[in-house]
Design a protein around this nucleic acid. Structure first.
Lengths: 213, 213
DNA sequence: CCGCATCCCATGTGATACTG
DNA sequence: CAGTATCACATGGGATGCGG
């Protein structure tokens, strides 16, 4: 038997053999947002050694989870349909781990892809369906996200554009999503800085994206 | 920063820091079935080095996922409420990995706890609710499981007792659950051996426990 | 025996340098 | 830009020891 196998005939062990290695599910997390080039993956996972990234990509490809796809002269990595089926796993992990987040430390970064998956985790379709469609523009450091909520559907794109509410924030937004911090307090304390639009729309945001701690 | 941390402020990375180490989620898998002693965990994970088991138990305890509980002179490990919240993660992983199972190899074992969690993964409450309550007795090598399906609820216990259908089987049962093998074919080919009761109840079993490949 | 702790070695990981 | 090569080190795997 291969030394890194668990020796059990079981779905969970099989899953862990395929995506249980260090960094593997984080690569999947970023690819769930969209196809990514090697350098984009490396940028979204700043602490991954480049040889490990290369090794994981090879393993995940051999496992049928992702594929290298040539896109007009450059190569992108994209999930296969089977790889995409990991989304429930990643969302469940994210929801569980969210509750174990303590206050952010300085060296902890927030990447656009990680925020995007966090928003997908915290998104409450049934609540959103009852609210008017809304576009939020979020600036996180140098990155901008356009968060479109239309009925029960969510779309998060890495672009800028017109928004009903544009705000700048950082890791502290997790306290807004957890309900630990009320929207008006978030604005008052500077955790969220309103750039354009009606600040009271942050109430709607907090209702739409919520994950109890 | 601790060297084994990912350096991101994100629920998924946090989750992987807590339960992403090798063997950790398999320990959780077995504890989801019930409290277990050190030796029981070691027996259910025959390939885990004993020092790694001890290390994981310590880490999972510090993370608030499990606790050591004295039970009448012996110590058992049991999940905390927060640890129990990993069940959706484990079930999602199991459902995904189930589809990647190929034919079992000789050295791959099936443990009572892994089978129990597989049954929980494959259980279809809405289908079961439409069927009469049924008790199945499954013998897997030396182990016996009593599988009680009552309405939309499932209970799997490691004991023997009266059953509407008692059968012996092995890893090949996964082909029954995946639908790859019809119930009558499973009996005909010896994948499932009926010990007592009406063999046609295996149809009901296959309807109740199903996970498409 | 059960519940670990210790030792040793193979392997995986991390940091850095390097190449097509 | 997209990886490969190299090397130090941490972790995992396997055997064994050992106290209660």
């Amino acid at each position: 038997m291969a030394p890194r196998e668990y020796g059990q005939y079981c779905g969970i062990t099989r899953a862990l053999e395929l995506v249980g290695e260090r960094w593997a599910l984080l690569i999947v997390r970023d690819l769930l947002v969209g196809p990514r080039r090697y350098g984009e993956l490396a940028a979204g996972l700043p602490r991954i050694p480049t040889n490990v990234l290369a090794a994981r990509l090879k393993e995940l490809q051999e496992a049928g989870i992702l594929r290298r796809a040539p896109r007009s002269r450059v190569i992108v990595y994209e999930l296969t349909p089977y790889g995409h089926e990991l989304e429930p796993v990643v969302l469940a992990l994210g929801a569980w781990g969210f509750k174990a987040l303590d206050d952010p430390r300085d060296e902890q970064i927030v990447t656009p892809d990680s925020i995007t998956m966090s928003l997908r985790t915290a998104f409450r379709p049934q609540v959103a369906a009852e609210l008017p469609s809304t576009v939020y523009g979020a600036r996180l450091g140098p990155d901008e996200l356009l968060i479109r909520v239309a009925g029960p559907t969510l779309d998060v794109a890495r672009e800028s554009g017109p928004a009903d509410l544009a705000f700048a924030t950082g890791p502290g937004i997790h306290r807004l999503i957890s309900g630990e911090l009320a929207p008006d307090r978030a604005i008052a304390t500077g955790v969220v800085e309103v750039l354009r639009g009606r600040g009271d729309l942050l109430d709607r945001f907090a209702s739409t994206f919520h994950l109890a701690a």
